[in-house]
């Protein structure tokens, strides 16, 4: 392969990452919470990877939906790797918050890799923006991720990517292989200039592996149902705030 360090990008590149640029989360109160700026202008640093972890049912997936949906509303396409819910469930769960994915799918603004539906034995037909894969087959997931990255990158060099979540992958693969997939995923998205969010349910891997997972992402946030905590985000001090899951999604208080 031609690695990124072989070919650098000059300063005029329109897609060059800039750590000063932030990506709006769409979560009320969140961007201000993770900003040290007195004006409260902040967001997730562009072209980074962010791990969101915590116990089950604490809003990690809702965070992902909200982040994706806000991006779509700003014309930023999204590459979504879903391993916890099949495409139908994903759409239904988003509809609970009145976030409607169908229109964006028709406009080809979202590219979905569904690694779960095949587990139920359903043979899903692939389309230009929907690719079925399998949680047991990381090689295939990466092939589809490669094609999906080209697809969203050509729509817009500023794109978002979601990986929700590591839980089912950990159930069907050796833990270390899941770490390898995670590293390959982050590398692929960051090289393409995207901003990645990865969800992980605490306690679904060995403690040592959990630590490796946390070290693999640039930023680490923990959600426990009441508090959202910045555990690591370069340039941002460690902090925590209360949050709620409402009918309109997460709100950081």
């Amino acid at each position: 392969m031609v690695s990124k360090n072989m070919i650098e990008y000059d300063s005029t590149s329109p897609v060059k990452s800039d750590m000063n640029n932030c990506v709006e989360s769409g979560i009320p109160g969140f961007d201000k919470f993770i900003s040290d700026d007195e004006n409260g202008i902040g967001g997730i640093p562009e072209n980074t990877s962010t791990l969101i972890y915590g116990p089950p049912k604490t809003g990690k997936s809702v965070f992902c939906y909200q982040f994706m949906y806000h991006g779509l509303s700003k014309n930023e396409p999204c590459l979504y790797l879903t391993t916890d819910y099949g495409i139908k469930q994903l759409q239904q769960r988003m509809m609970d918050f009145e976030w409607y994915l169908q229109g964006y799918m028709q406009d080809q603004m979202v590219y979905i890799i569904d690694a779960l539906s095949s587990l139920s034995g359903t043979k899903m037909t692939d389309t230009s923006i929907y690719k079925p894969s399998s949680v047991q087959n990381p090689t295939d997931i990466m092939v589809k991720l490669g094609v999906g990255t080209i697809f969203v990158y050509r729509k817009s060099p500023k794109f978002r990517s979601i990986f929700d979540s590591l839980k089912i992958l950990l159930a069907f693969n050796p833990d270390m292989l899941v770490v390898r997939i995670l590293k390959a995923y982050i590398k692929r998205i960051k090289e393409a200039g995207g901003t990645a969010i990865i969800a992980h349910t605490e306690g679904t891997a060995d403690i040592e592996i959990e630590e490796v997972i946390k070290k693999t992402a640039d930023n680490v946030l923990r959600l426990d149902g009441e508090l959202i905590k910045i555990e690591r985000m370069p340039g941002i001090r460690k902090n925590e705030a209360q949050y709620q899951i409402t009918d309109g999604g997460l709100i950081v208080l």
């Binding site: 392969m1 031609v2 990124k4 070919i7 990255t149 080209i150 090289e191 393409a192």
Partner: peptide
């Protein structure tokens, strides 16, 4: 089996 890449696999 290799890739030719410039940001994305081309």
């Amino acid at each position: 089996l290799k890739t030719i890449e410039e940001r994305v696999i081309i």
